[in-house]
Nucleic acid binder design. Structure first.
Lengths: 347, 347
DNA sequence: GTTAGCACTCATTTAATTTGAGTGCTAATA
DNA sequence: TATTAGCACTCAAATTAAATGAGTGCTAAC
C-alpha cells in the first residue's frame, strides 16, 4: 500500500493531535480537525489502512489511534526536512559565560530543562588530546612534591607525590630536565615501555617518583575518565502521566542518578555526528522508544545534539521526554544552545 | 497524664508494628502482639490516652493508629539510648580505598543506599584551610602561563592565564619571586587590599596577570565553593507507597537533583556535631518530618552522621527515607561507615 | 470513491452494596 | 478500682452493577 497525500495528511493530523492532548484520537475528532472535508467513516477506512501499515496503533478495540514508533519516526523525519518552523513559547535562552566550565554546563542543562519542560543532560566536551604539552615537578613542602601535567587542549592534571625526605633542589631540577627532554610533545603511543625503562634507569634511586609521574601522565591523556555528565529537570517526567507511574519513573530517575548509563548514548551520538556528514541537521539525532541505546528509555524519546566548544572540543547534550514530545520546540532549543556555545568560546 | 510503663510498652508496640507493616495498627492486633496480656478494650483505653498525649494519630475515625512525629521522636530517643542492638539483614559493608576521593565518596553513598534501601548522600569533607602553601607560575606555551596554587590541606588549584606575547623567562621568575615573598604562608584575612595594591605596583606592566592570580588564590582558599555532594538510591523512595505519589516523589527527586539544597543540612549537621559533645552518639542526628531543615523532606526522616577523614577533614553523610524507616539499621549502617572512613586514612 | 446508518465493543465513570477492621461506650466481672 | 465482654456504630476499601460515550467495522445506498 502506498502512503499517498491524503493518508499522509491524516497521519500527521493524528500525530499532532496526540502530541497536544496525549489521548488517543478518533475519526470524529479528526473529521473536525482536518482541513480537507471528509466524513468520519472515510477517515476510519484510511485509519484502518494506516494501522495495517504500522504507523498507528489502537490501544484497545474501541478506542482511537495513537502513533506507533514508526509513526513518530515518519513525523520526525518529515518535520526535520522542512526547516525553520515557528516555535512558540520559548523564553530567550541566554548562556552567561561562567568562570568554570562545569558551571557553564550546569547552566546549559538547566536552561534546556526549564525551557522545554523535559529532562535534559549535557556531557563535558571530549577533547582530542594525546600529546603531552608541559610537565613540571615542584617541591610543596618537606615530604611532598607536586607534579603538574598539561596535555593538549590545556587539560591540567595534578599529582602529589610523597618522597622519603632526601631530595634536594638540584635533584629535582635534574628530574625535571630528564622528564622534559624525553617526554615533551610525545603522544601516548610514543611513550612505550622501552622509553619508560630508559627514563627510570637514568633517574637512579628516584625511579619510583618517575613511575608515579608516568602513571599520572597516562591518566591525564586517557580521555574517558573525566567524562562528566550534568543533568537537570529529571523530575519533569512527572508532568507526563504516561511516564509518571512508579515503575517507569523509578527506572528513569535511576538512570539519571547513575549518569554513567548515558555513556553509550554520548559516544554513539558523537560518532554518528562525526561520520554522518549531513550538515543540515547539525548533528541532531532523534531516538524514539526502542531506538534508544538506553534500555530504560524505551518509553521515551531522546533527542541529542552535539556542540563544539572552541578548538575541537566536542560534547553532547540531550533532551529526554515522552514520545509525544514537542519535537519542533526541542530541536529549536538544542539548536539555539548549539549556536550560543559555538560562538561563546570563539570570541 | 503520665507515660507509665504500660503506656510506653504499648506505644513502642504500635510504632514497631507500624514500622514493619506501614499500616495503621489497631487494638486487636496489639493484643496479640504484646507480651503482657491485655484485652483489646483495655488497649483501646490506653491508646485513647496516648492519642490525647499526642504520641499517636488516628488517620480517620475508624482506623487504627499511626505514630505522630512526637511518637517517632520518643521512639528514636529511647532507641538511641540503649546501644548495640542486633541489626539484621545487613551485608558486610567494606569500603575499598579508591584512588580519587570522589570515587570513594560515590562508593560510600552507594553502599549506604544499597544496604538500607533508602536514599543516601555524602558530602565531600570540608577542609580547614586558609593558608597559602605554594604558588608558582610556569609558561605552558607562547601565549599562556599556568598558575598552580596549593593551600593548606593540599588542595590544588590551577589557573591558565593568557598573556599578550611578550613575557620572557626572566620576568616570569621575577613575578614568581614577588608573589612568593609577599603571599607565602599568609591566610586569607592577611591578604588585604593594601597588600594586593602593593604587589600590583611592583609588578608594573604585568599587574593584570597578578590580578588574575590573586583571584585564583581567593578561589582556592574559599571553602564553600567546592562542597561536593554525592547521592545514591534516590529511586529507592518508590519502594515506600507513602512517598511514591507523584507530588511527593517529584519534590524529593528534585531536591536530590539540585543537591545544593542539602547545603543547609550539611552545615547544620556539622555544626551540631562540633558543639554537641555527646560523644556517645558519635554525631548521629535524626530529623523527623518537619524537624528537617529541608522543606521537601517534611514527609521523610533524615538521619545524618559526620565522618572524619584524616586530619581535621570533616564531612557528613545522610540517609533519607520514610518516617517509618528502620532507625536501628540505619544508625548501624552509618556508624559502620563512620568507623571505616575513620580508620581508612589513619593507616 | 464516499458516506450514512447501525450494531457492537469496551474503557471509564458513577452509584450502590458489602466487607471488615477498628472505635467508643456501657455494664458486668474480678 | 482496673479490666474486660459486648454491642452499636463508623468509615475506607473492595466488590459489583449499571450507565455512559467515544470509537470501531461493516454494509448498503449515494
Amino acid at each position: 500500500m502506498e502512503l499517498n497525500e491524503r493518508k499522509t495528511k491524516i497521519l500527521e493530523a493524528i500525530i499532532r493531535n496526540y502530541l497536544e492532548s496525549g489521548d488517543p484520537v478518533g475519526s470524529r475528532t479528526l473529521s473536525k480537525y482536518l482541513d480537507i472535508k471528509l466524513s468520519p467513516a472515510t477517515i476510519r477506512n484510511e485509519m484502518s489502512d494506516l494501522e495495517e501499515m504500522g504507523y498507528i496503533i489502537q490501544p484497545h478495540t474501541s478506542s482511537g489511534r495513537i502513533p506507533s514508533d514508526k509513526g513518530y519516526r515518519f513525523y520526525v523525519d518529515s518535520m526535520m526536512a522542512d526547516r525553520e518552523k515557528e516555535v512558540s513559547d520559548m523564553h530567550e535562552m541566554v548562556v552567561e559565560k561562567a568562570g568554570e566550565l562545569s558551571e557553564l554546563l550546569k547552566q546549559v542543562a538547566k536552561l534546556l530543562a526549564d525551557n522545554t519542560n523535559y529532562a535534559a543532560l549535557i556531557s563535558s566536551p571530549q577533547i582530542h588530546r594525546n600529546k603531552l604539552k608541559f610537565l613540571q615537578l615542584s617541591r610543596v613542602d618537606e615530604g611532598n612534591i607536586l607534579a603538574v601535567i598539561v596535555v593538549e587542549g590545556n587539560i591540567i592534571k595534578n599529582k602529589m607525590i610523597s618522597v622519603n625526605g632526601e631530595m634536594d633542589d638540584d635533584t629535582l631540577l635534574k628530574l625535571n630536565l630528564l622528564l622534559n627532554t624525553h617526554l615533551n610533545g610525545l603522544s601516548l603511543e610514543e611513550i612505550n615501555l622501552g622509553l619508560i625503562t630508559l627514563i627510570k634507569e637514568r633517574a637512579g634511586i628516584h625511579s619510583d617518583v618517575i613511575a608515579e609521574v608516568i602513571d599520572a601522565v597516562a591518566d591525564a591523556v586517557r580521555a574517558d575518565e573525566d567524562l562528566e555528565i550534568y543533568t537537570s529537570g529529571a523530575n519533569n517526567i512527572f508532568k507526563y502521566p504516561e511516564l509518571a507511574d512508579n515503575q517507569k519513573a523509578s527506572e528513569i530517575i535511576s538512570t539519571f542518578e547513575e549518569k554513567n548509563q548515558f555513556g553509550h548514548l554520548i559516544s554513539e551520538s558523537l560518532e554518528k555526528e562525526r561520520e554522518g556528514g549531513d550538515s543540515e541537521k547539525k548533528g541532531i539525532q532523534v531516538y524514539i522508544g526502542n531506538e534508544s541505546p538506553i534500555e530504560s528509555m524505551k518509553d521515551c524519546s531522546v533527542v541529542t545534539a552535539t556542540y563544539e566548544l572552541g578548538d575541537n572540543m566536542k560534547g553532547m547534550m540531550s533532551i529526554i521526554g515522552p514520545k509525544r514530545m514537542d519535537y519542533e520546540k526541542v530541536a529549536h532549543a538544542l539548536k539555539t544552545l548549539q549556536e550560543q556555545l559555538d560562538t561563546l568560546y570563539k570570541k
